[in-house]
């Protein structure tokens, strides 16, 4: 059972790495922001899966904080820093 949980965690980490590279190379500035969404869900999943594997129940709390802070970071970025002059395309 532990092996399967660890295998699923490894699979999620591989997904996260591939999607991270794809989103960071994306054409528009919005693609960069997808990373925050991605790490909010996938990172939470990995931490929750690691908790029974490593016999550390406190990792569930870390997963909660991670989910919250990914949301705060993403929304702060969208509201505050992501400004662009009109007509500029990247």
């Amino acid at each position: 059972m532990t092996t399967l949980v660890l295998a699923v965690a490894l699979f999620l980490l591989a997904n996260l790495a591939v999607a991270l590279i794809a989103a960071a190379r994306g054409p528009t500035a919005a693609d960069g922001m997808l990373v925050a969404l991605l790490i909010g869900t996938t990172g939470t999943g990995i931490l929750v899966l690691l908790a029974p594997v490593m016999h550390l129940p406190a990792l569930v709390d870390v997963a909660l904080v991670l989910a919250l802070l990914a949301a705060i970071g993403g929304i702060a970025f969208a509201k505050r820093a992501w400004q662009r002059t009109e007509g500029e395309h990247d």
């Binding site: 960069g32 922001m33 925050a36 690691l50 490593m54 991670l66 970025f77």
Partner: peptide, 20 residues
């Protein structure tokens, strides 16, 4: 701006590393 987002992502990945 993208470098800043990647830095935040780096911090979140670091917390995964601390969990390990």
């Amino acid at each position: 701006d993208r470098a800043l987002v990647l830095f935040i992502v780096f911090g979140l990945l670091m917390s995964l590393a601390w969990a390990r």
